[in-house]
Nucleic acid binder design. Structure first.
Lengths: 213, 213
DNA sequence: TGTACATCAGTGAACGCGCGTTCACTGATGTAC
DNA sequence: TGTACATCAGTGAACGCGCGTTCACTGATGTAC
């Protein structure tokens, strides 16, 4: 039974959205094409009218999750003063809430390991999502120069690492300690940085000076 | 054809070792029980003489990988002065070599995402491996007090995050930047900490003071 | 030390199951006239 | 605007495949006497 163009587009969008939720919640391999279609009350045969294969769906689901996650961050930080942005970002990203609800959270944290063994389209989509996460860090932890960029990459890696490990461990106390430690670590680095101007920070950092040989 | 006790024990050990390598290389779901047995030229039926089910193998494989990884670290840092331990640990953990060879590397970084959806035995074994990774950080980044412990948890999360993300992205330059940024970030924090005694560091850290309410 | 027998590591085929993908078909939608 | 026909979204069954697990069997090892 053919559907109108609007219905078709809406169905496709709904499939991607369901997939992005299910993949984040259960992992890519644990969610079948039939599972995804079932969310909309559809059967599996129709899937291939919309997508070439499962890999294409995964790639698009990652993109959709990245966009949703990015929009959520934008909405949650709207109106925040630049100095409060980092704290707000960390509060959200490193929350118990985020750990307990991967299906609505950051696809980078939810799918990083699944993606490592994935196809090229999936990895490319994941890399775009990772870049978007890094943009969030750029905004919250601003600053020019290689030192500032390194600081943001370090922060992003720690944030993802903390959430991934907090989700993987069966010890809630350890999970909580990881989240709190990364949050404070990044906050303190951020405050240290904004307290002293970059030039002075560089001049007094023996480590940075040594590294620059 | 029954085997001697020594043979049986050796076979069991070999199966676990092969599994620990294959799971880290390809992920848990992507490696079948038959794949693991095939490494020793065995057929799948014999597997259940050694293990109750695949989950038990996964749990033991994580433990074996953790031990191997820990021993490798101990051997590679033997004789290093306390002040050089952190640099050596970071050099190894955040290396291209480590990223390209998950099968011989840290099981926490290789399996963190697989484990998040695993059974209780697997998660418990993973948590023990994570604790062992944290011990490595304790040794390399020593210091008493809650602040020092947070610093180590932060470092461990960032290390795992960097390796996981470096492996997942298809952009080698981004992977390299992540590894380098985390390495420098932890090194600099470590040097900053050892340069100023903890008491002074606390007194001058407005962030820490504010946090302690 | 020798013998009879129980044990059990490993074989290889089978089990039921769920997967991704294909396909003939249906019938409403879109289009050409 | 009306009609005839092509298109194609979705169905539901089937395809081949690989998975974890089970099981009857084999024959060397371990053990009891």
């Amino acid at each position: 039974m053919r559907r109108s163009r609007e219905d078709t587009a809406a169905t496709r969008q709904a499939i991607v959205k369901d997939a992005s939720r299910l993949f984040r919640a259960r992992g890519i391999d644990a969610v079948s094409v039939a599972d995804v279609m079932g969310e909309q009350g559809l059967t599996v045969g129709g899937f291939y009218r919309h997508f070439a294969d499962k890999e294409q769906l995964v790639a698009e689901a990652i993109a959709a999750a990245s966009e949703q996650s990015s929009d959520g961050h934008a909405a949650a930080t709207k109106g925040y003063a630049p100095g409060k942005l980092a704290a707000r970002m960390l509060e959200r990203y490193l929350s118990k809430e985020h750990c307990e609800h991967p299906e609505a959270g950051c696809p980078v944290a939810a799918l990083c390991s699944d993606v490592a063994h994935g196809g090229p389209a999936v990895r490319a989509s994941f890399t775009r999502a990772l870049r978007r996460l890094l943009q969030m860090a750029d905004e919250a932890l601003p600053g020019d120069g290689a030192r500032a960029r390194e600081r943001r990459l370090h922060a992003a890696a720690a944030m993802v690492g903390a959430v991934v490990l907090a989700r993987a461990t069966d010890d809630p106390a350890l999970a909580d300690a990881l989240l709190r430690s990364v949050r404070r670590g990044i906050e303190q680095a951020s405050e240290r940085e904004s307290a002293s101007p970059p030039r002075r920070a560089r001049a007094t950092s023996s480590a940075a000076a040594r590294r620059r040989r």
